[in-house]
Design a protein around this nucleic acid. Sequence first.
DNA 1: TACTTGATTGTTGTG
DNA 2: CACAACAATCAAGTA
Length: 176
Amino acid sequence: MKVSKGRGSKDKNEAIVEDRKSAGKRKAVGKVSESRNSSSSSKRRTGSVNNFEKQASAKDPNKPKRPASAFFVFLEEFRKVYKEENPNVKAVSAVGKAGGEKWKSLSSEEKAPYEAKAAKRKSDYQKLMNAYNKKQEEEDDEEEPAKSSKKPKVNGAKEEEEEEEDDDDDDDEDDD
DNA sequence: TACTTGATTGTTGTG
DNA sequence: CACAACAATCAAGTA
């Protein structure tokens, strides 16, 4: 029991989720945002509140992008299938709609493999972030110490996240 | 930019 | 100070 929730009285994210869906796009909802709105002003861009920083963060080529969600993983495959069935349709919106519809049609078990894949990506993402984080610390010297200090392979890179490997799934193996 | 949904992230708010 | 929950942006596919 967590005494009380955060700022809002709504302890159910479901309610919000519904709202989000209702609105269609989660943009400028202005529902319970009165609070953070004061500070964030309009929208909290990418990380930084100041538009100035916005570009800074956006210009980070080393910054790992967000991992694809289960839906995106599914989309990747769906796109291929959709393309074969609809070679004429190359609009991303078409695949998005069709994919979204199909996605909802799938059962939890069917989404399971996709979620598993997405989960794996998430782990990798966190790992990349770890490296990215470190980089930020030693940015003072060199961004990529590839010649001086040579670090062949860091095996125990897992901080606290245990990664489960599926032998049956295709994974990136070792690179020599 | 169009569109999909999920996730990541950031900020706020209360205890 | 820390957790919790919301709120907004972004992630890819091509013309």
